[in-house]
Amino acid sequence: MEVRTIKVFTTVDNINLHTQVVDMSMTYGQQFGPTYLDGADVTKIKPHNSHEGKTFYVLPNDDTLRVEAFEYYHTTDPSFLGRYMSALNHTKKWKYPQVNGLTSIKWADNNCYLATALLTLQQIELKFNPPALQDAYYRARAGEAANFCALILAYCNKTVGELGDVRETMSYLFQHANLDSCKRVLNVVCKTCGQQQTTLKGVEAVMYMGTLSYEQFKKGVQIPCTCGKQATKYLVQQESPFVMMSAPPAQYELKHGTFTCASEYTGNYQCGHYKHITSKETLYCIDGALLTKSSEYKGPITDVFYKENSYTTTIK
């Protein structure tokens, strides 16, 4: 009895394709271990004539594949690729409408935090270190965002349907971005203890939790000093293409032309909904596939993004 075979390709990165001759009487799992086709788990399936010449994702289970996976995804987590594939199996079914010149995501599976993050990423200057993220990001900007969303979920250790947080998501993504040249110098002034300067680099240099107003941050924000008295913390120097200011959701007025974009969060910790506000020729609110415009805006804002380049204080 002759062994019926077909020729397929296996890959971990969709760049390096490895030619395989597979036995049609055995499952993919018996031949390769966990195997995925377009995100779908085909591990328990036997090869079919229609699979001839198709590319299958496999887990990096030998040295060659491990090197290829690390170079593309910059992670050695053995569960990463499987999590990416199972997320992709959902995100490829989502709709990605162009809204006001940006790629958004039609609401499904509690994905409003991903839509808000995706919209924000198209408006701030950011370059990702893992080629996987950078490639998928370019495709997302062009309207094909399924891979990018699935990668975000995998890097953030999230599953489809789980509630997510924009600030946490951005923080994970910033860790995989090139923020080497970003720098922030802060000064804390206390009447009792004097003053202390701190220099922050990388992710810490672009994120701040405690106030939404970048102007206020430049002037000074009140913080408790270690001595128990009130101290003032203010920005001395900022070198970065953008800054992200966050605070627990509270009524906040966004003035046209003073910011790049913002995240609105309605609801409580267990259950809520994100919308995205962007400042173009007027203010726009993007909620999944829905767009509304207004000249002014007041609502429960939790993150505001500002364009920056270089700032030095005039406070002496």
Rank of each mutant, 00 (worst) to 15 (best):
P224W: 11
F148I: 08
Q238F: 01
N14C: 10
F70S: 07
Q238I: 00
T226K: 15
R139T: 11
S213G: 04
C271R: 15
P97V: 14
W107L: 04
L153V: 06
I152H: 03
F217S: 05
A87H: 03
A177H: 01
P224C: 11
Y57H: 12
C225K: 01
A146L: 03
L102P: 03
G29M: 11
Q175I: 06
T192V: 11
D23V: 14
T313H: 15
Q31R: 12
G272R: 00
T266I: 10
Q123C: 09
F128P: 05
Y252E: 06
K298D: 11
G299F: 02
L59H: 15
Q195D: 13
N157W: 04
G288C: 01
T55N: 09
P78F: 08
A205I: 00
I6S: 06
F242P: 02
A140C: 13
I45T: 13
F242R: 01
R184L: 02
Y311I: 11
G228T: 04
A150M: 02
N187Q: 12
T103K: 02
K95M: 11
K307V: 14
G288M: 00
F259N: 00
T192F: 09
P47T: 04
D77V: 04
Y36V: 06
C193M: 04
Y137L: 12
V21L: 14
K92M: 10
F305L: 07
V206W: 01
T198Y: 13
G272H: 00
K219F: 06
L114W: 03
P241G: 09
K7E: 11
S50N: 14
D77L: 05
T258P: 00
F148E: 00
K316W: 15
M245I: 04
K7C: 12
P249K: 01
D303K: 00
G257P: 00
C182Y: 07
G228V: 01
E204W: 07
S104Q: 05
V304I: 11
C225W: 00
K7N: 10
S294I: 15
Y96E: 06
G194I: 03
I124M: 06
N129K: 12
D303N: 04
N178R: 08
G53H: 12
K280M: 12
G82A: 12
I223K: 04
C261Y: 00
V3K: 13
S25T: 14
G202T: 01
E215D: 14
T91E: 04
A115Y: 03
H90D: 08
K106F: 06
K95R: 10
D77E: 12
